[in-house]
């Protein structure tokens, strides 16, 4: 059922299994227990960083499938996307796992766009099992999007560190695991920000716009959720988004508003404003916060993945950075239906 820009999932699809993979830098980070598989080498025995990213996504998919006790043939669709040119790491992964594939792009918001679409398809009987996931690799993404650190440039304190990792979720009609109850599809929000080293500031209004739309569409009070989790705003973006929410009259508590980019690394790691990349929200939500739902620490979360939809070319052509955020709400579920 659609209400405003929010889907309400009456049949309450479940997130029955997840798989997360991380690199060596993430292993030394703040939440190493969020990863099912950790690598100790950024090449992951591959000949390029793009192939390493593909390896991580394949492993995350295979782990999620194995964990669910389903066979590959029982999964109807794979929905995924990433940040590399034409999304080849995801395409190659779709080829490896051999499941009918939807490619999507919302930059770092792809993780929750995938989860929202998967839940909607399952809710409306379009499928029974859907795998959705995304991956990013620090070295591959840096060379794609930004100015790699190896060029010797100085990054400002607002810049972020792309997470090396992959996160996958398996959505099913029945089974055990958290329920997916609703999803809000965000609008593109462009506040004319132009600095690719300050993505948090560019994406914060998109996150706020989607959160407000979600609460408005469902007529919910912000206290309904134990946690509202943004994808990769970083320390700067989180602070800006929090103040923006308060300014718009949303009485949100600071400890209720967390950001995957701000929790994934320790403060003494040289990541400046925090983590980013498609894997940031994927590993944060599928690895860390879904685990909190499962062990009962929290009951209801709203996962808001944020994406900056610029390209290196649009930035060089003095374009602004349009941003988007997609929100999915998850509720702890009893073990079986």
């Amino acid at each position: 059922m659609l209400q405003g820009q929010t889907w309400i999932f009456k049949n309450r699809p479940r997130l029955i299994s997840t798989g997360t993979v991380g690199g060596p830098f993430e292993a030394k980070g703040n939440i190493p227990e969020a990863f099912d598989i950790l690598h100790d080498d950024i090449w992951m025995k591959q000949t390029s960083f793009e192939k390493a990213q593909q390896t991580m996504l394949e492993e995350a998919c295979q782990y999620a499938i194995k964990n669910s006790n389903l066979s590959k043939e029982q999964i109807d669709f794979f929905i995924g996307g990433d940040l590399i040119n034409q999304m080849t790491p995801t395409t190659f992964t779709a080829d490896t796992i051999g499941i009918p594939y939807f490619g999507i792009f919302s930059a770092c918001a792809s993780s929750m766009e995938g989860l929202a679409l998967a839940a909607h398809m399952i809710n409306s009987d379009g499928a029974t099992h859907i795998l959705t996931g995304t991956a990013s690799h620090n070295a591959a993404t840096e060379r794609q999007f930004r100015y790699p650190t190896e060029y010797g440039g100085q990054k400002p304190p607002t810049s972020q560190w792309t997470v090396t990792g992959a996160g996958c979720g398996l959505v099913a009609k029945t089974g055990a695991g958290p329920h997916i109850t609703s999803a809000t599809i965000g609008k593109v929000v462009d506040m004319g920000m132009t600095d690719p080293f300050h993505m948090g500031g560019a994406m914060a209004p998109a996150a706020v716009d989607t959160i407000i739309a979600h609460l408005r569409d469902l007529q919910l009070d912000v206290g309904h959720y134990d946690l509202i989790i943004t994808g990769d705003l970083g320390h700067d973006g989180r602070k800006i988004a929090l103040d923006l929410l308060l300014e718009k009259g949303i009485a949100i508590q600071a400890e209720q508003f967390v950001d995957c980019g701000a929790v994934v690394y320790r403060d003494d790691q040289p990541v400046l404003s925090g983590g980013s990349g498609t894997a940031c929200s994927a590993i944060g939500i599928y690895g860390h916060y879904v685990q909190m739902l499962k062990d009962g620490t929290v009951d209801r979360i709203l996962a808001v993945a944020t994406g900056a939809l610029h390209s290196p070319m649009s930035v060089q052509q003095k374009g602004s950075i349009p941003c988007i955020a997609h929100a999915v709400s998850l509720e702890a579920g009893s073990d079986a239906t």
Partner: peptide
């Protein structure tokens, strides 16, 4: 900046006060 809609201008001023400054 003058070409930006007022909403974007006020947001940019809003975030400018909160972003980490370059030392």
């Amino acid at each position: 900046k003058k070409n930006l809609p007022p909403k974007a201008q006020s947001y940019q001023a809003f975030q400018k006060q909160r972003e980490s400054k370059r030392p």
